[in-house]
Design a protein around this nucleic acid. Structure first.
Lengths: 345, 345
DNA sequence: CTGTTAGCGCGTTCAT
DNA sequence: ATGAACGCGCTAACAG
């Protein structure tokens, strides 16, 4: 029988007050608004805090102030690496503050998102970061009633709940397809997994450019509700070649799909970029070192996470950014998988 | 000027009590120990709860009971996909319960881990899940004093803080190298990124087998403190070929390194598996569809997350598993990258 | 089975 | 610049 884990007794504000020989409120003030406390008592309190090892009880703080130090982060999934990148940005952005992120995933279900928001509402979060702009009406309302700064991320919209930072996914789709056309590809397919709202908008961008060039053909659009994954990319490419054997390029809604598609080409002996051009989305680490390297539309997930946190922090500090809508942009990273044109001039 | 986000007034226990015409405690009991409340009042309360839309205030619960519904999850990083897999398991395992996971990352720093644990300690978590078994003495003590079930994950040890689930990393390393030797490889290199404790133990396993066969050679061991990444794999392979040009196989401490190494071989025209055998670690999705497919030592991260949660839940339900130490095992997934032997018999 | 009485540790008035 | 008093919403003893 091992010892039952003995909880260490927690030091509280009154303990500190006793040790420093001042009242509880004074300690509380010294901690939150030091400028209102004399230098002398401030030092005594700092001393007591240190020797006793006092750490505030967040539950008591939250209860008394009706406000927690939680930053709620709502993403659809953790399988897709882009959201892991976003989270890293959020975590790093919160570094050094006393705020704590709390992540949940919606599994791409709007009703689940509402439920999760309801849970968050009871926590009185200090701020909320939610992926996407396609919340249900109920979810939007819940976010508004949350009584804290809210940042939608990964996309842009003229009508955010509160603030928004991300990129224009449809425009990114257009840029990708334009690049392929510039390189001389014409029978350009679209490979899409999961087909969440962001994927839908990338597809819309694809359609914009294809129809503008009179290149539209339903046989070229291959999608699946399956989550994005390397293995799915291979299957989608196979389906495309069955549907449109003369396809000469693909735009993929994620880089794992793009890499999977490349592997499928290699299995079939299709030369990339000569016989098949490939453009991915998001510019994951892997596509810049594959053989051949894969062109991709880079998005700035990590930076988006960082900035979203900053937007919230500024708001909480009473200095909200004038800019409620931030376009994080995108970059078309041109690599070997689309370099069919002769180089340079 | 847009309306200031108006906080919705929260419904509390006393509101429900009023509506149901019973005392506050009765409501509280009806919610937590329904069997102690008569069917009649239970129904009245359920009604009131539903019509008022009552949701408990976790801060108040935590304060009054000195216990939160948080499950603390401490991982070193979110960059490595294996931890994202673990998190998915934890999230899914918590699905349907009223417990909420809270993730933090140590960035592979022991002192940071201690700090984070101190923060968790103030939250009175319901349970803790921590990656690895190499906590500092201070961290171990903090975990013990947490007063809640603790599960260490990703490795095994005869001496866990409380409970542990994971695999024997050193043994996994041995199995990988044994497989390469069985396939006829002899000049087997080790490619290791980051070199955290798990990587160290995989290396130890590699050393065990290599020296047992009299194949040891320092020139074959290439490591870097850099975080594991696809691009790092290429560099490590290049370094190995500079250090030991006659190397004929590699064991990599992660699959991104393995894939990066494969790409490097392709760039150099080295045929895999004929001229270079490759075994990765963890069996990420991507290595089963690359060309060629890559052999890897599969670990069960998702299942580990699920089980860790179950271990904690059982503990909280008063029915702790008799088994405090669980070996989640590993599997050597044999694929094309090491299939040098003639097939079948 | 149900209610009464006390806090949990902190923030927020209002005084001084 | 400092302190006393009260309450946040809930749980935990005890009574009845």
């Amino acid at each position: 029988m091992r010892e039952k884990n003995a909880q260490k007794k927690a030091i509280k504000l009154s303990d500190v007050a006793l040790r420093a020989n001042v009242s509880v409120v004074t300690v509380s003030r010294a901690l939150r608004q030091p400028e209102l406390v004399s230098q002398n008592t401030r030092d005594k309190i700092a001393d007591a805090v240190k020797t006793l090892g006092y750490v505030p009880n967040p539950a008591a703080q939250a209860l008394a102030s009706a406000r927690s130090r939680l930053i709620g982060v709502v993403i659809p999934s953790l399988t897709n690496q882009i959201f892991a990148d976003l989270l890293r940005g959020v975590m790093d952005g919160l570094e050094g503050t006393t705020y704590i992120p709390q992540f949940v995933n919606t599994r791409y279900k709007l009703t689940r998102e509402e439920d999760l928001l309801r849970v968050f509402a009871t926590q009185r979060p200090a701020g909320m970061i939610v992926a996407g702009i396609d919340q249900s009406a109920a979810a939007r309302q819940l976010l508004q009633e949350m009584g804290c700064p809210v940042v939608q991320v990964m996309e842009t919209t003229p009508d955010p709940v509160d603030m928004v930072i991300g990129c224009d996914q449809q425009d990114a789709g257009r840029a990708a397809v334009r690049h392929l056309i510039d390189q001389g590809y014409r029978r350009i397919g679209f490979l899409g997994a999961r087909m969440d709202p962001r994927a839908q908008r990338r597809l819309a961008g694809y359609n914009d450019i294809m129809s503008a060039h009179g290149l539209s053909d339903d046989a070229l659009v291959i999608t699946t509700p399956h989550p994005s994954a390397y293995s799915v990319g291979g299957q989608l490419m196979a389906d495309l070649l069955a549907s449109a054997p003369d396809a000469d390029a693909v735009f993929c809604n994620n880089d794992d799909v793009a890499l999977g598609a490349l592997f499928e080409c290699q299995r079939r002996g299709l030369r990339v970029p000569e016989q098949m051009g490939i453009v991915g989305s998001n510019d994951l680490d892997v596509v810049s070192c594959s053989v051949p390297t894969i062109s991709s539309v880079r998005t700035h997930r990590y930076e988006t996470g960082l900035t979203a946190v900053n937007m919230i922090m500024n708001h909480l500090n009473g200095t909200p950014l004038e800019q409620r809508i931030i376009d994080a942009g995108y970059d078309v990273m041109v690599r070997s998988s689309t370099s069919r044109q002769k180089k340079g001039g």
